[in-house]
């Protein structure tokens, strides 16, 4: 079950994914109906099972939301607006940001094995 982020716990879990090959799922979306209901445009991106090697990983609090930055061998991975987390099936670190209606806005997930 996704629960509110606890900075210390998430940081400790992040540390276990450093210095090894891992898979990430990174996503952000404002929904496929954003431009249907108002004037905005649909914005979304996802990458699933990108294989990366992280040397540093840090979670930072900003008011009610959190940011996570992962330093990889050749670059960076970044997510903003995270509110919830969960260790899924004992091994995958799921982090996500939701709006007040429970709609997912952003997700960053780490796993040592590919996501299904």
């Amino acid at each position: 079950m996704m629960k509110r982020i606890e900075l210390e716990e998430v940081q400790q879990t992040l540390n276990t994914f450093l210095h090894k090959d891992i898979y990430i799922h990174l996503e952000t979306t404002n929904g496929a109906y954003a431009s249907h209901f108002n004037e905005s445009i649909n914005v979304g991106v996802f990458i699933r099972n990108a294989n990366v090697f992280c040397t540093q990983g840090k979670i930072v609090k900003d008011k009610a939301h959190y940011r996570v930055g992962l330093k990889t061998k050749n670059g960076w991975i970044y997510a903003e607006g995270l509110t919830h987390w969960e260790i899924y099936e004992d091994k995958q670190l799921l982090m996500a940001g939701h709006d007040t209606e429970g709609r997912l806005l952003v997700a960053l997930q780490l796993s040592e094995t590919p996501f299904k």
Partner: peptide, 16 residues
């Protein structure tokens, strides 16, 4: 699979 409604209160995650 990519639906963004996770329930209110939240009961789902991207994997479930």
């Amino acid at each position: 699979e990519m639906g963004r409604n996770m329930g209110n209160p939240i009961i789902a995650n991207r994997e479930t």
